[in-house]
Amino acid sequence: MPVTLLSDIRDYPWTNLLTGILPVRVAARLPSRFQSKQAPIVPAASVAGNALTVVIAIMSFLACLTAGAVYMVNQSAQAWVNDISSEITVELDPVNEADIEKKMTLVSLFLAKQKGITEVKPLTAEDSAKLLEPWLGQSSALQALPIPRLIAVEIDRSNPPDIDLIKTALSQNFEGVTLDDHRRWQAEIRTLTRSAALGGIAVLGLVAAATIAVIVSATRSAMASNREIIEVLHFVGAHERFISSEFERHFLGLGVRAGLMGAVAAAIAFLLLPLMTHMLGGGTVTTAETQRLIGSGELDLPGYFLCVLVVIVVACLCMITSRLGVIRVLKSYA
């Protein structure tokens, strides 16, 4: 099968593919080298109807959206993990501490002396209160709450400190001081990313299965309506491979055409996504949460490359499915 497929790809009339993808009126205006000199043995109109093109285009659109969304979530999560993995947070319990500011200074000085720590940034009480604002709102009551004080510590990722050693030293020297290296958060983000990826793969699998089912059905229908042509081809000595290539060429054109339509629609959706997120955001907090999950909502170049990949996969899926479908039906005729 692989050798057959390779020789099929080599022998394929690629210059005619363009005319197969473009609408008939546009294709007729192409230079002669792109024009097919002979009519296709299996007429295109008897294989690929508009409804089938629309269905495959929708499948391609859904696949591009899924692949792009998973990619964006993954990129955003990766950026988040990179961000928090270069930072640790030291938390000071404010309860029963008369002079919390002095303790903040002492702990900061202690941390700054440790190997592998590049920057120590104590957060003020206002900074800590601001972190709670999205959930509790702006209120003077925040001042009265015993909000933990935080020290953001940036670490040298190329020469990281011994976190466990620092944790032990802090607990021995200071009371009510804890260190959070964000491992739990990293694990949760990874779980979220994996879940999104698995969900995306499941959706892509369903889209692929639906595409295969539609193509199998369309292949059978095309073969039934062209049965007389198949018989004549048999009578003039055509091999199954020749007959299947006559059908698969139409399905390849259909796959490329419909795949491109779906991918272009998805690309437009991704281009408009930041604007839509802003317009339909539902408030600052929701917008901020959405952006935390999928970033700014803008797909970068590798993300758009995924859409191109979807077009290639859809076209190959159409071609291979129709080929196998035709050979199966031909065997049943025999």
Binding site: A39, I41, P43, L233, V236
Partner: peptide, 14 residues
Amino acid sequence: HLTTWENVALPLRV
């Protein structure tokens, strides 16, 4: 859907 010429040429094309 094929012209007379294309019909006659079919075995050679195959």
